[in-house]
């Protein structure tokens, strides 16, 4: 019974691994935290923008792949096109301080 379980586990593992690798390349725009760390090393600073919010953090390994782990509060972004000119100036100033 134990041998059967081992064979079953190995076979299933191979199938899962190969199928998941294929699926994971489908690309749905839901991988920005990973993309933010594609060319970086662990603990390196990173940031990404998604859903009008900016996340800032460091690259950490999850399942042995680096992804951007946020450690600063999310920043809400407002499109310049929808913002009054006076506020744009103020916002740019606040960005420069960072």
């Amino acid at each position: 019974m134990k041998i059967f379980n081992v064979i079953k586990a190995l076979t299933t593992g191979f199938l899962l691994a190969t199928s998941c690798s294929a699926l994971s390349h489908a690309g749905h725009g839901s991988n920005v935290p990973w993309e933010a760390c594609e060319e970086k090393a662990i603990n390196e600073d990173c940031s990404y923008i998604s859903h009008d919010k900016k996340a800032t953090g460091t690259c950490q390994a999850m399942n042995k792949v680096l992804m951007c782990v946020r450690n600063k509060p999310l920043e809400t972004l407002i499109d310049k096109a929808t913002q009054p000119a006076s506020e744009q100036k103020q916002s740019v100033k606040s960005l420069a301080k960072r």
């Binding site: 593992g13 691994a17 998941c20 390349h25 749905h28 900016k54 399942n63 042995k64 809400t76 913002q83």
Partner: peptide
């Protein structure tokens, strides 16, 4: 064990898709 292998395998993927926006930071909590 196989589930772990799978998750590892899919995690190795480098996929496309990114968000680019013309935005400014205005609010934080």
């Amino acid at each position: 064990a196989p589930l772990a292998v799978c998750i590892l395998a899919l995690s190795l993927a480098a996929c496309n898709g990114s968000d680019t926006q013309s935005s400014v930071v205005t609010e934080t909590t």
